[in-house]
Design a protein around this nucleic acid. Structure first.
Lengths: 347, 347
DNA sequence: CTGAAAGCGCTAACAA
DNA sequence: TTGTTAGCGCTTTCAG
């Protein structure tokens, strides 16, 4: 309020101490909510701080206190709906705390993961959310070995040493496939996810199991990689459409590749769902924007972000906590991209 | 490489000094690329640092050096394609520097902007990108008065004291409107943007001017607010369709509201573009995903983010630099949501 | 070319 | 309940 905007240096705790006539450690106590401070003293300090327009210097605070009040999130990039949804949840939850968010994108650190890990542990952040899949195990175990608070998002953990939150990938894929089967589809193409990720493996497995449970044959030509990207879905769909005995339905391991598939299908002059049914996975905001609206498996990304933050903050508070795993439920969202198989559109 | 993962405290500059047999200020010099260091000394220090697995502590560095190597970006939220595109550009450019990105969302600071501003200036970040529109002028001038490096994105500045980067909003709106006029449309609805933003004002103005330039009457019933959000576009379109003398085309001030409009139009049983033509603004990735693919004005968001970062880094390097303004060109992207007005579909 | 030493602003013992 | 005093790890004069 009364601060002088022209003053060169911002007021420090010392200025506040001088102003209120107490020692600067008392000021620190007041500012940190320490309870055993005489109310009148507290009031005086607070008033002085207000008067001077004092705000703490985060760097100094963390250097002395050992905490940065920053939490980091490592993502592959910020450019798709999947990450945005996750970030929204993360931010929402973080807003309730006094932590700020620092975003690391993996592109910056190719081959230098260990240096990054070391820097982060060295005070750049108090905890890390790992959204990026395909992070080298070394990287993760480096952090883990130092007891650094860490939560993996959407990737289960091989070692059992890390906390993670994910969704029912297997079940979701099973549900999607079964939905198509119940509509009468027998030849169902599968556009796979990113090799090496647990979600991709689980979704493939859910698909295969659903086929098996309904006594449908497994045809390896019907399984093509899409790498979780739009372009991959496009190429995959083209490959699928080129099979002599073309599938009547396609289940794409994520929405992004489903969008690519839509493009390919429509370019081939085929209609969705009349000529071919399509199911995605994720339920990105775009899914209800495309035409036809995409039937897909909802993955509660926003909630996953929130839960991950909660788990991370717990871990920061108590580093001794054993790893926790939380798996949230997926859900089939029926829209307009599928239809029952009738004699007319039999492959 | 050879560091011991079980050691409790990470190595500091002092450990490196001891290991290499020089004073720790020399280590600091080497680490900061100071040139007048004997090559052999430099090598010895570097080797010791490598051996110990030394990484600098960012907090200590910034406390002593006065720079945090963090740049902040203030956004309303992370949840729409518009922000994502911008962030992508920002991140891309930042990746070339050694700055990291800290994301602030406005929701966290309602009513406490000045405290936030103070904290940021107080070392939390070395510079700030302001993407959020509607940030109180006080907030901005508080930062400006302290000579804090600042770049506004997509909002021109009333005071002339701040650097900003934006796009040709007026021209884009003019082009969009003119495009519709040239297709034969005479009654063109306008779904407005967020009140109080310069882009909304400029786009409205471009629209009006195009009408005037082509001797088309201005009808206030054809101008409805959409607030740049999907829901707003939906409501706006409904209002527009309810007019007795319904428009044959609609120009939405951004893609988000255009998406909402599509929803409304289709719900009313009308077809785009057969019954009504639609143009958006922004060219979000989703624009080519919707059906029909949206004709829109491309705004180079990614590039705007990159340019903003460049300008900000310049400003950080040289705080005395006068404010700069960069306006990037928009471009009409013709897709499938418009068609010429023929006798059949005359309102 | 290199070392010594003074802080940066704050937290957290330790005293009193 | 409050004051005193070490540092946190590093950058940066200032002297050699």
């Amino acid at each position: 309020m009364n601060e002088d905007p022209r003053r060169s240096a911002p007021p420090t705790i010392i200025d506040v101490a001088r102003e209120s006539g107490v020692s600067y450690s008392t000021v620190s106590r007041v500012l940190n909510g320490y309870e055993f401070v005489k109310p009148t003293t507290r009031a005086r300090v607070l008033q002085a701080a207000e008067k001077l327009g004092y705000v703490p210097n985060p760097q100094a605070r963390s250097l002395a206190g050992g905490r940065s009040n920053l939490i980091g999130v490592l993502v592959p990039g910020i450019d798709n709906g999947y990450i945005s949804e996750l970030l929204r949840g993360i931010d929402e939850e973080l807003a309730k705390s006094d932590y700020n968010l620092i975003v690391y994108t993996t592109r910056r650190q190719t081959g230098r993961e260990s240096v990054y890990a070391a820097t982060i542990m060295n005070g750049a952040a108090d905890g890390l959310l790992l959204v990026a899949p395909m992070i080298s195990a070394n990287y993760i175990s480096l952090l883990r070995d130092h007891q650094f608070p860490l939560v993996l998002i959407d990737q289960s953990d091989m070692t059992g040493k890390n906390s993670f939150v994910d969704a029912t990938n297997w079940q979701g894929a099973y549900d999607a496939t079964q939905y198509l089967i119940r509509l009468g589809h027998q030849r169902i193409g599968f556009i796979g996810g990113l090799q090496g990720t647990t979600s991709a493996a689980d979704r493939l497995d859910g698909y295969l199991t659903a086929l098996a449970d309904h006594n449908l044959p497994q045809d390896s030509r019907l399984i093509v990689p899409g790498h979780y990207v739009e372009r991959g879905g496009y190429d995959a769909a083209l490959a699928l459409l080129d099979i002599s005995d073309r599938p009547t339905a396609i289940f794409a391991a994520n929405d992004l590749s489903a969008f690519g598939a839509m493009e390919a299908i429509q370019q081939r002059g085929l209609r969705i769902p009349e000529d071919i049914s399509l199911v995605g996975f994720d339920n990105l905001p775009q899914a209800s924007l495309v035409y036809p609206k995409l039937t897909t498996i909802h993955q509660p990304l926003e909630q996953m972000g929130q839960v991950a933050v909660k788990m991370l903050l717990e871990q920061i508070q108590n580093p001794e906590l054993p790893p926790r795993h939380v798996t949230l439920a997926t859900q089939l969202i029926v829209r307009d991209s599928c239809r029952p198989l009738t004699p007319q559109n039999l492959g």
